[in-house]
């Protein structure tokens, strides 16, 4: 009979190898629904983002819509190290979700007007349009009148583009988060040099926060995806928004958040006003939204949508990885009532 002996070192190696194989099997099983390769790509990019330079976000104090909004935007643009948009074709995308009396659910025209003036007179963009693809209504014209946008746009001599009915451009989706390989997008956005997302500071009953990222739902054509574009919610709101952020075809982007009067509670429509007196700006949409959450006294680490995208390396939400400029966050912070769980 042969006396089979195994050394302690070999035993340790065997145990280590077995552990690695078992761990790999667990990870493979856990990631089966999305695919290990995708999961690994997202995870590695998320880890790499930890070593990337901090994202810069700027805050400005603006006590009311009659105050110097233009001056505040000028300071934000500089403090946030905004992209150079000279001679660029720019799409400004406010949030015009709906008009409901005494519910400040949309981006006020004073903020958009000041931004348009700044872009044309100081940044000297080549062209600028205001664009929106409303979700609850098929036609935006009544909304434009009710919200004051029609008069503002006429005064500014800036065109409005209804993204719900624009020509369709198929955009390849590179992220793999949603179960779609392409998305039809409005040509105005797909062919622009830059997109400026101008959301309202507010809570949201599905995503907890409605910021610069959720505002991107409006760039998807309703005529294709329906009203309120629920087909994309079915993909998983987090997954679909990650897809939009990752695959956005505009080379340059910036977010400017209207937090002069925000909305708390049952956003995006039925919440109540909070005078936050703030504008927030930055090029990293995730960092801007995480800062907005903190501005509302909410924890971005408790918001799945932000946590998932940060994990996947689509931006920063860790306060240590966000460089704040301008007015202090603590000065502007107001505790918002969170959205009810739906």
């Amino acid at each position: 009979m042969t006396n089979f002996k195994i050394s302690r070192r070999a035993l340790l190696r065997l145990a280590l190898g077995g552990g690695i194989i078992a761990g790999g099997a667990v990870v493979y099983k856990q990631t089966e629904s999305v695919g290990f390769d995708k999961w690994a790509r997202w995870m590695l990019r998320g880890q790499a983002a930890r070593f990337a330079p901090a994202s810069r976000v700027a805050l400005a104090a603006v006590p009311s819509y009659d105050a110097d909004v233009l001056g505040a935007i000028r300071a934000l643009w500089r403090d946030a190290n905004a992209p150079d948009l000279q001679n660029a074709n720019v799409v400004v995308k406010p949030n015009l979700v709906d008009y409901i009396t005494e519910r400040p659910c949309y981006t006020m025209p004073q903020v958009t007007a000041a931004l348009l003036q700044f872009l044309r007179e100081e940044v000297r963009v080549k062209s600028v349009v205001v664009a929106e693809g409303t979700t609850f209504r098929r036609d935006p014209h009544a909304l434009l009148i009710q919200t004051g946008y029609r008069d503002m746009l006429a005064r500014q001599r800036v065109a409005f583009v209804d993204l719900n009915y624009d020509d369709l451009v198929p955009i390849p989706l590179r992220g793999g988060y949603a179960k779609m390989d392409k998305l039809f997008m409005a040509r105005t956005v797909a062919q622009a040099d830059a997109l400026i997302s101008v959301p309202k500071l507010k809570t949201h009953h599905w995503t907890r926060i409605s910021g610069s990222i959720k505002n991107l739902f409006g760039i998807v054509p309703g005529v294709k995806y329906g009203f309120p574009k629920n087909t994309l919610h079915i993909q998983g709101i987090d997954a679909f928004l990650a897809e939009l952020v990752d695959s956005l075809p505009t080379p340059k982007r910036f977010a400017l958040v209207d937090g002069i009067v925000g909305l708390q509670g049952d956003g995006p429509l039925f919440g109540t006003p909070v005078a936050s007196g703030a504008l927030v700006g930055g090029g990293d949409f995730l960092a801007v939204d995480a800062t907005c959450a903190r501005l509302m006294g909410l924890d971005p680490a408790a918001m799945e949508i932000l946590v998932f995208m940060a994990w996947a390396g689509l931006g920063q939400i860790d306060a240590n990885r966000i460089e704040l400029r301008g007015v202090g966050l603590d000065t502007l912070r107001k505790n918002y009532e969170p959205a009810p769980s739906a």
Binding site: R138, G226, F227, T231, I234
Partner: peptide, 13 residues
């Protein structure tokens, strides 16, 4: 009827 297959039903479609 939905807007697209796989969606919930909506009034218009």
């Amino acid at each position: 009827w939905p807007w697209l297959p796989g969606d919930a039903a909506w009034i218009f479609p």
